[in-house]
Nucleic acid binder design. Structure first.
Lengths: 335, 335
DNA sequence: CCCAAAATGGCAAACGTTTTCAACAAAAAA
DNA sequence: TTTTTTGTTGAAAACGTTTGCCATTTTGGG
């Protein structure tokens, strides 16, 4: 790769000013006389000068780049979040280094080390758990971190999310009130705190409120894939289950299609409420009722919060935990 | 932001060697005596030294970062491609700067300028068209570019894709052969060459082969969204259309649901073949027959090709245009 | 007109690496 | 032994910015 042809030095020479002045012009520093500024800008345009962001990063210790960890880019839930993140990031002139973690602790650690080596100004973490080692690394690196759309085993990190517990409770209550007694909780891996803690608690709270005994046979743990819940459909029906609150849309669609393909009518014989309100819930037939989350906003707000933190508003006092409102979309999978 | 505490210099001092030697150790340069190497590695571990990638980028003129332009991260088609890209990228130790272009020429230009300023080693472009200005910029920047999963108005750029024209032709033939005479082509914006050139040509070729006259009333242009084709469903049926080849899965699902919601039976009264074989085609009911594309592979191969180009294998002679095989998945939307 | 204060701009030292070149040492060949 | 060759290492110059500090100019009040 050949040397960059036109540098700040070239411009300085052509404009008969110093590099410092060019730098000031480029960065909008006010301490430069309008005439000089114009002169420099003309040269910049003429030479088509483009500042080298790497050199700038080294000198200024700011890369205007943030790292984004996403479990899987093809997961619509996280993709929606990522869209919000990206929009706000580009609004604030930040770039996004995006990497899939595949929910693999090993990989996540590697990825973050990489991001830190690249001197990102901040990190947005999406995912279901954060290895201790990673947490330590992040803390000692002193890089601002915001957790978006997920709950992890750490309460010191800034987080943007909804109240998963309450949302789960409300959904479960709705199913219980539709005169169903056998309401199951179909969930992704329980090793993720968002499932095992937040959602399960909400589910239990709803049962308690309606004086229904908790039956752990009704908590159906899956690996979170479409296929896994599709396969569970038949068993659930045979077990007499009449409704299910489902922890993610993949699972909900799988369950729905599994039921339909087995001749079970939704919502007549079985009701479903899902959790994430992604496109899946709208394109399935019947459509799936769901807790609604402002996905885009969660991403957007997380990114905005991150910019604050990166600007040094450490604001340890400020609320670091933003809980957005959720809602409910009544669709065809519930009566 | 405070100064980096432990640098290559610190390590060098502690290990009583020069920076050069530390650099060699870190980069696996073989010209270091094993004993020295060990000594340096010990210090690195003890001090927990992490090389600064920005400084490295400045000195070596390689950032091990590639820019990826994606129309919209939430579009499953491109998300699948992106997954392949990311996997291979991380295999080759590259990071991905991912940005949504929203298919907006202005924005794309801005984004690419940004990427170039950040000194990315290469760019993967996904999208439906490339503004002339952008093309010029890319060429003069001398940065390797690979176009993935799309066709654009330029034949000099390396591209990885399938044969959209033939795929469209085969799909249309299938529909024609199922004894339908009124086969429509429901497409996204015709200003995109992949639609107006490749797919439309394929559609026409199929008609010609079956001696069916081309009727431009049967080419239904939409804005590419779910809703747009959903809204077209009724009109199509009223116009006597019996089947449709659809240019993307969003549209196909929209059309399908529009038909179903209007009481039209698929596939009995209307057959559909879609183009991209994303999840949508599998979770809809009925499921949608589709051309199949190795989406992940397209992304993966594009990235691999890019690494070649970045390694300087300019190989102007080599095939710069990789055409992968496509297939067909028979599902419930066709007989 | 003079002088202090404000505005402007230049110098040069960072920033943390890689890399070229030369030096030196050790091993091999003569 | 002497000369080559090969293998290891270090010194220091890039890489292209930003920025602190100082010098010079402008400005405006008296």
């Amino acid at each position: 790769m050949e040397k960059q042809s036109v540098t700040i030095y070239t411009v300085a020479r052509e404009a008969r000013v110093s590099m410092a002045t060019v730098s000031r012009v480029v960065n909008g520093n006010p301490n430069v006389k309008p005439a000089t500024r114009q002169k420099v800008m003309d040269v910049i345009k003429r030479l088509n000068y483009r500042p080298n962001a790497v050199a700038r990063g080294l000198a200024s210790k700011k890369t205007t780049t943030v790292g984004v960890i996403i479990p899987r880019i093809t997961n619509p839930y996280f993709a929606d979040l990522a869209l919000g993140i990206d929009d706000i990031a580009s609004m604030y002139k930040y770039n996004i280094i995006l990497t899939n973690s595949d929910n693999d602790d090993e990989k996540v650690l590697k990825v973050v080390r990489n991001l830190l080596a690249k001197q990102v100004d901040g990190i947005i973490f999406m995912g279901y758990s954060m290895p201790d080692e990673l947490r330590d690394e992040l803390k000692s690196s002193n890089t601002p971190v915001v957790v978006a759309g997920s709950v992890i085993n750490d309460d010191e990190l800034a987080t943007v999310r909804i109240d998963y517990e309450n949302a789960a409770k409300e959904a479960t209550l709705k199913l219980l009130d539709n005169a169903k007694d056998h309401v199951a909780f179909v969930t992704g891996p329980l090793k993720y705190v968002i499932n095992s803690n937040d959602r399960l608690s909400g589910y239990k709270a709803a049962l308690a409120e309606r004086h229904v005994d908790f039956d752990d046979q009704l908590v159906v743990e899956t690996d979170g894939t479409y296929q896994s819940s599709y396969d569970q459909a038949k068993k659930l029906v045979e077990a007499g289950v009449k409704a299910a609150y489902v922890s993610n849309d993949n699972l909900a669609v799988g369950l729905l299609n599994g039921l339909t393909d087995n001749g079970v009518k939704v919502p007549d014989d079985f009701e479903i409420i899902s959790s994430n309100d992604t496109t899946y819930t709208k394109i399935s037939r019947p459509t799936i009722s769901s807790i609604t989350q402002p996905l885009y906003d969660i991403g957007a707000i997380a990114m905005r919060l991150l910019t604050k933190l990166m600007d040094g508003n450490d604001s340890t006092t400020d609320e670091q935990d933003v809980i957005l409102d959720h809602g409910f979309a009544q669709r065809q999978s519930t009566r």
